[in-house]
């Protein structure tokens, strides 16, 4: 549990950080909260030559509203999100998901940006980012760009971030009135990671029917995904028990589920439907 040798630089500006990344290319890794990368390094499964610690860069940790969006700095900790009274009011899915990550120590150190960029197939944030239609801002020495959450998660531990890019900010459209949200997960008892995690954000019309729904699911496959078939079934539907169950049954349509020692692919798919049903029900209350 002792990492291999590495160099460490803690730049104080984002410009410096991206310059370091483009300079060191494949050999460098960005260190955010360190709650995924450091364990992997201690097992020597990850052996980066250089850690670029972005924890000393000022102005990467914030939650603000701007341009109709919630903007969250990449270095904002899970705990900061969990404890934000304003987020509880305008986008409760975020604090709800944050509060279910790991344990208190992890939430105090781990960051939303670090988790998203790591793209663990069982992490909680990817489901939330998908359900909230987040835009992830990536900065590199060539400039800045936005990546839709739906395009961001590519495969196991693999994102659309290019070599030399740093995830700097998460932008989420401020949910409309009559939006209901929920994040529910079955946690693996050892790791606390999601065996299945379902994030739901839905908007009801004046009559109480579902106007639109977004459902993000993590833990089931090699990456988190939007459950398009569930969303389609919910759109325009009345949110009664039967409709919800029928929609939730599509939670893993077209998904190649993974199994492990704790939960087989078959069980994971079943759990996804159960948790989708429960999360949609919770969101529609």
């Amino acid at each position: 549990m002792i990492p291999a040798q590495f160099d460490y630089i803690a730049p104080t500006t984002l410009d410096e950080a991206v310059a370091l990344l483009s300079q060191h290319a494949d050999d460098a890794k960005v260190l955010a909260g360190g709650h995924s990368l450091i364990p992997a390094m201690k097992l020597r499964l990850a052996q980066p030559q250089l850690l670029v610690d972005i924890g000393r860069i000022k102005g990467l940790s914030y939650i603000r509203e701007e341009g109709g969006q919630i903007r969250i700095g990449a270095m904002t900790t899970h705990y900061q999100i969990e404890s934000s009274a304003r987020l509880r009011e305008i986008c409760p899915l975020l604090p709800e998901a944050a509060g279910q990550i790991g344990d208190v120590q992890v939430r105090n150190k781990g960051t939303i940006g670090g988790s998203l960029a790591h793209s663990d197939p069982a992490a909680d944030w990817p489901a939330a980012a998908l359900a909230l239609d987040a835009e992830l801002r990536a900065v590199s020495s060539k400039g800045e760009r936005g990546i839709k959450a739906a395009d961001f998660f590519v495969d196991l531990f693999t994102t659309a971030l290019e070599q030399g890019e740093i995830l700097s900010e998460i932008r989420i459209p401020i949910p409309k009135a009559r939006t209901g949200q929920a994040y529910l997960k079955a946690a693996q008892p050892a790791s606390g990671f999601a065996v299945v995690g379902v994030a739901v954000s839905l908007v009801r019309d004046a009559a109480g029917k579902c106007e639109a729904a977004a459902v993000g699911i993590t833990g089931v496959a090699s990456k988190a995904y939007r459950a398009a078939a569930v969303e389609k079934a919910l759109a325009g539907a009345s949110l009664d028990e039967k409709m919800i169950a029928a929609a939730a049954a599509h939670a893993t349509d077209g998904i190649d589920a993974n199994g492990d020692l704790y939960a087989s692919a078959q069980y994971r798919k079943h759990l996804a439907a159960v948790y989708a049903r429960r999360a949609i029900t919770a969101a529609s209350r």
Partner: peptide
């Protein structure tokens, strides 16, 4: 929760507390 699992090759596949579930 708890079980030390050796696979049929004798690899201890519950090798960390990420897989070996001690109750919280």
């Amino acid at each position: 929760y708890e079980e030390l699992v050796y696979d049929d090759q004798g690899q201890l596949v519950t090798g960390t507390l990420m897989d070996y579930a001690v109750p919280k």
